[in-house]
């Protein structure tokens, strides 16, 4: 047991893993900085010389045709995929390429997957409880107690995502849209500095989309949010700055109107979707 305990305590070596501090240094620049990043899968370059900067508190939309590398980009930021070349920095202090997935999560990067994944066997309340930013080591988790502060925080997030009435239901029986919100709620429980949201409104009704837009724009400023989305109407409704990805690199960047009138963009992306429509 003592062996286990000492193993479990090795996190202490890295002071940045103690969750309450906000260790990210954004005094001298952006919160996320990707430079010359390249990833190939069996020779195919899914990300090709990508450069991207996200400022602190910004809400950024990323669009691009299927297979443009949007999800792969998020995989790189969260440590799931390691790039072949390039560098990725979180603030000016943390080189994300040297950190593991849980370390990156604990630093304050939260991610919502393209396909909603919530813990279906657990209730909505329990899903949020697990997502809470606390000591995630084994023994503290075993001995964790529910208290008023945690309950208040969970209630607050339940209100933001509009699932107050469902808090005791297993997440598995929620509708698709509700699962998406629960997942955003789980991100919020971690009080992330940077939120990566992959296709949040896929499969949502108009009304649900409006709520989601409100939710995301409400978050910006307090935290930085990166939204990947195909739905142009939705992007227009929330976007301040839009980045267009194509074949693994940035094709254009600017306001929605700027990128939509960019001839390169019209050719590869908007043109395509108009043809399809």
């Amino acid at each position: 047991m003592s062996l286990l305990q000492s193993m479990a305590q090795r996190d202490r070596v890295f002071d940045f893993l103690v969750p309450s501090e906000s260790p990210v240094d954004v005094r001298h620049g952006p919160i996320l900085y990707m430079e010359d990043v390249t990833v190939s899968f069996d020779g195919f370059k899914a990300i090709n010389d990508l450069n991207l900067t996200i400022d602190d508190g910004e809400l950024r939309c990323i669009i691009g045709p299927n297979g443009a590398g949007k999800t792969t980009m998020m995989d790189i930021i969260t440590g799931k995929t390691r790039p072949d070349t390039g560098s990725v920095w979180f603030g000016s202090r943390h080189n994300l390429l040297t950190l593991s997935e849980p370390e990156i999560a604990r630093l304050g990067i939260g991610r919502k997957f393209q396909k909603p994944t919530v813990f279906e066997a657990l209730t909505v309340f329990e899903n949020l409880e697990l997502a809470m930013a606390t000591d995630k080591r084994v023994l503290p988790t075993l001995m964790a107690r529910m208290n008023g502060d945690i309950r208040d925080r969970i209630d607050e997030v339940l209100g933001m995502i509009g699932l107050e009435a469902q808090y005791r239901q297993p997440a598995g029986i929620l509708s698709h849209g509700q699962k998406q919100w629960l997942e955003i709620g789980m991100l919020l429980m971690q009080r992330p500095r940077l939120l990566l949201v992959d296709e949040p409104v896929a499969g949502m009704t108009e009304q649900e989309m409006e709520r989601t837009a409100e939710l995301l724009t409400g978050l910006a400023g307090k935290q930085s949010v990166v939204v990947v989305e195909h739905d142009m109407g939705f992007v227009r409704s929330i976007a301040r700055k839009v980045t267009v990805l194509h074949q693994g690199s940035v094709l254009a960047e600017g306001t929605m109107d700027q990128v939509q009138s960019d001839p390169k963009v019209i050719e590869v992306y908007l043109g395509e979707s108009e043809e399809a429509a």
Binding site: L4, M7, A8, P19, T78, K80, E101, P102, A105, R106, G110, R111, F113, T117, V118, F119, E120, A121, L122, E126, E129, L130, A131, A133, K136, R137, V138, T141, L142, M143, A144, M186, Q190
Partner: peptide, 29 residues
Amino acid sequence: SKLGRVCVAARDAEARTRFLGYRVERVQL
């Protein structure tokens, strides 16, 4: 305990649990 809920979470969606910041391999161990 909360650890038990983390176990169930890791059982059903291991990658997701890692992204929440839990060291799944230590919980399993």
